[in-house]
């Protein structure tokens, strides 16, 4: 393996890691604050990607498509929160699992009805379409770098929100104690809505910016959901820092796995997860229950 090839794979792994971080941080946030396990998280990733593809085709502009698709997906998420998930906060996790499993069935079928079974490519915006030469023979696509930059920007914004705002204080405390939330001047219902909306936005945005690289296809939400679970389990539930470390670990392990072990690639990340669990059952940054 040449050095530049190694470099390219590492860049790919990091870029995939950043993307996973966006999705997994939404998942872990919703669980950490609301105590809700949301299997439909991946479905929002898919909805975001499909809407972005559709708007990009209709308007001819990927940027415009993202600007249109993001609020629509978040609105959909908020409606689901308002009329469904809100009624399950006090219930057993089992019911949350089933409810969101039902949502997946619905959203997957709606996707097939509306957009069909085909795989669609999304054009990279012309401004980001080029490649950076690494050596004489190899180059690296600018758009992939852009994904990393966009993810870093979002992660940075998330960091600021968590460190500098009252909403962040609640999130850091990982607390849903009504007294504390009330003392900080939040209405618990509103807080949950905001957090759920934020989770949906993170998933949907990840789906959108990944679409030009990964294409959009039926079942894409399931795949990302499960890999996000692995990230969250490795990092520790409810921990944003854990989600970041877990995402990088999984992104890089998966990328190298595909290169080094083509026939067993799917298993590599799970093996990493099993190893982490042997060492720390509560995940790298998880609090023991």
């Amino acid at each position: 393996m040449s050095l530049s090839y190694f470099l390219i794979q590492t860049l790919n792994g990091v870029q995939y890691g950043f993307l996973l971080f966006l999705v997994a941080s939404g998942l872990t946030l919703v669980f950490g604050i609301m105590g809700v396990i949301n299997l439909a998280h991946g479905a929002f990733y898919m909805v975001g990607a499909y809407l972005a593809w559709w708007f990009a085709r209709a308007t001819g502009s990927f940027v415009l498509a993202v600007l249109l698709a993001l609020p629509i997906t978040v609105l959909l998420g908020l409606l689901i929160e308002r009329f469904g998930i809100r009624h399950l906060y006090a219930r057993d996790h089992l019911h949350q699992v089933l409810f969101t499993y039902g949502l997946i069935l619905i959203l997957n079928e709606v996707q097939r009805v509306v957009f069909g079974n085909d795989v669609h490519g999304v054009a990279i915006p012309p401004l980001l379409a080029g490649s950076l030469p690494l050596t004489e023979a190899q180059s690296y696509p600018i758009y992939r770098l852009f994904i990393s930059v966009a993810c870093v920007a979002v992660a940075g914004a998330l960091y600021l929100v968590i460190q500098r705002t009252r909403l962040g204080m609640v999130i850091r405390a990982g607390s849903t104690h009504r007294e504390m939330v009330a003392a900080l001047g939040f209405d618990i219902g509103r807080l949950f809505m905001v957090v759920f909306g934020l989770g949906v936005a993170l998933a949907a945005f990840a789906g959108m910016i990944a679409a030009p690289v990964n294409t959009v296809y039926p079942g894409m939400g399931d795949q990302i959901l499960i890999i996000s679970f692995v990230v969250v389990v490795i990092g520790g539930i409810g921990s944003i820092k854990g989600a970041f470390v877990g995402a990088m670990l999984v992104g890089i392990a998966d990328t190298y796995g595909r290169v080094l072990l083509p026939t067993g690639a799917g298993v590599v990340v799970y093996a990493v997860m099993a190893l982490v669990l042997l060492w720390r059952p509560q995940g790298l940054f998880g609090r023991m229950a």
Binding site: I37, H93, V97, I226, V230, V233, Y270, M273, A289
Partner: peptide, 15 residues
């Protein structure tokens, strides 16, 4: 236990 258990059984089965 709890949500952790749900996620881990899912992920290991997926392996």
């Amino acid at each position: 236990s709890g949500v952790y258990f749900i996620m881990i059984t899912l992920a290991l089965a997926q392996m």
